[in-house]
Design a protein around this nucleic acid. Structure first.
Lengths: 341, 341
DNA sequence: TTTGTTTATGGACACGTGACCAGTATTTTT
DNA sequence: AAAAATACTGGTCACGTGTCCATAAACAAA
């Protein structure tokens, strides 16, 4: 690979002068600038970003860790963040923790070895890595959390207003007459502490509804798990009349289980889900969802990390985005039989 | 950030000795090794990968450019390649060219500036960047193409056996009695030269079927384009009796257009698609698809790039994977009315 | 002219590491 | 006992760049 010395030699100038053709062209005599630029073009010279970052102390690389790329929410997140950051001159390292804290620790170390300037993190559940991230932050790595907060997280974040969204959904189901509502989500305070599941019992109480303990199952947010749990729930003596899935992939598993059991939406059971995924309006009936403003959130996270990098020591910025309830036909009043029970 | 000199100072040894605790621990006296290791742990030292790569000339970073992360095929590709390469100690830079050659050129330059060791490329259509990639290759960047070949590509690749898959699909549709078959794909030889669309006319001829020129529309592989084109095709005086979508996202757009028109699958029209996406078996009827072995292809690509990096100057390795036709119910014999016409 | 100022260019050094060579103490061989 | 081999440790340099300082020529101000 050509370096700036090769360029300088070909242009008949010193390396310092050659470098100025890129970093401070206004300092050069027009004729010199032209000669150097031609040499750069002829050699297809591209500056070595690693050396630049090493010397200057300013990395132009940002690390992004998501929960699971196969979840379309995260795919969009990557796409939009990647595009936004590239426009600002940053390069993106991507990792997928598969919701596993141990994967995540390895990935954080890899990022650390590459001396990223900033970290956008959708942490795997739990707080085992909180200290590690705090140390990165202390070493001048900017940190922004997205979609999920590590417990006691002191960092900036971009989040959905999860509690309000849960409220929106539950009030909707309640207004239809549902009493036996099951939330498909994580149910373990320390291992899987997501805000949506956490808000569920309290919001139910506000509506004067009881939460059946039989409905609480600790699961990882995969379609396969939701499929399994849905079968279990529907086998209970008092099965739920409405399912509320906290992610789109959970809804997908639930949908498949319900159809397999021959249950018709919305007569036999109601299904409500987070995430406005394409399939939700392709099935019949289309699924009622709480849509997240993924693009806006992604852009906000990207712009936030840039601010954190370029003006350090700013107070943590914590932003919440609202979700939107879209009614399509997968929810209705529970069957009379169920209402009586 | 702590560096090896800090570690050395704390352990009371020279930097050279301290570094050996990581790179050549067998050379150190047990007591020394222990002291250095403790210092490393206390400082949470992680070697600077940029400096290491700069000095050694061996980068541990690999660049991956995909067509569109929102296409689940590419999401899986990223996930599996990322996991496989991490296990081998490589870090992944990800970019999404959005099927646009100009984006791609910028991304290639960014990769070049980061001195990636290898490039896994799903090129945007066309060959404008072929020369640039060839120059990277000449400068010792390993190159593997996936899913798509740049025209006259001399590189290693991992591909689906597209022609055979098209044959599989068309023979299936032919066996059901279809004559008016439209392929949703790109139709421009130089701008959008994908193998699937390209193989279509010849395979139709082999089956003794005519290709209606009215069915040939140049499109980008997005769901929105397929939606639009499907409406156009169905408005023709002689609409197709079967649609063959060359990607899952195209099928998704087509499906929505067909449903909007009140057409029932498979009675009114047959739909066949590449890519076994989750939604294809959630809709009713489930969609017949040609499934790609995404995981196997991703692992193959990841392992191939590592081989190319670690043993340079090897001949190009070009691998084809077979697809599988899965019949589910979205294809049937064309209606009598249509057969007669 | 003299002095100061601007314009255009070049040189020295350090970032953190890996490669290589050099040294000293200790052990083994003859 | 001397020589040789081994075990362990330290020092020097370069990778390609950005930062800072130095120099020479041209020009402006006195």
């Amino acid at each position: 690979m050509a370096n700036i010395t090769d360029v300088a030699r070909r242009a008949g100038v010193s390396p310092t002068t050659a470098k100025r053709a890129i970093n401070n062209p206004e300092l050069l005599a027009p004729a010199t600038l032209k000669r150097v630029k031609r040499a750069i073009a002829q050699l297809a010279y591209e500056p070595d970003q690693r050396a630049a970052a090493l010397r200057s102390g300013h990395s132009k690389t940002i690390g992004l860790i998501v929960g699971n790329i196969d979840e379309p929410f995260f795919a969009s997140l990557i796409r939009v963040i990647s595009r936004t950051l590239r426009a600002q001159g940053y390069t993106l390292l991507v990792a997928d923790n598969e919701y596993d804290t141990r994967n995540e620790l390895e990935q954080l170390k890899t990022f650390q070895r590459n001396r990223i300037a900033g970290l956008i993190l959708r942490s795997g559940y739990g707080k085992p890595n909180l200290k590690y991230v705090q140390r990165m932050k202390a070493n001048d790595t900017a940190v922004v959390e997205v979609d999920f907060l590590m417990p006691e997280s002191p960092f900036s974040h971009v989040m959905l207003d999860n509690t309000r969204c849960m409220k929106l959904g539950l009030e909707y189901l309640h207004s239809l007459g549902h009493k036996r509502i099951a939330t498909l989500g994580s149910y373990h305070e320390t291992i899987l502490p997501d805000e949506r599941t956490k808000a569920f019992p309290e919001l139910m109480a506000d509506l004067g509804l009881a939460v059946s303990e039989a409905y609480e199952r600790i699961i990882h947010p995969t379609s396969a798990e939701a499929y399994r749990i849905t079968h279990e729930l529907m086998n209970l003596p008092e099965p739920p009349t409405a399912l509320f899935a906290t992610t789109g992939n959970l809804a997908s598993g639930a949908f498949q289980a319900l159809r397999e059991r021959g249950l018709e939406l919305p007569q036999d059971i109601s299904l409500l889900s987070f995430d406005n995924y394409p399939w939700t309006h392709m099935v019949a009936p289309a699924i009622d969802v709480i849509a997240q403003p993924v693009e806006d959130m992604s852009i906000a996270a990207a712009e936030m990390i840039v601010r954190e990098i370029e003006t350090p020591d700013r107070p943590a910025e914590q932003v919440r985005f609202p979700g939107t309830l879209i009614k399509r036909g997968s929810c209705a009043a529970p069957q009379a039989m169920n209402v009586i029970v």
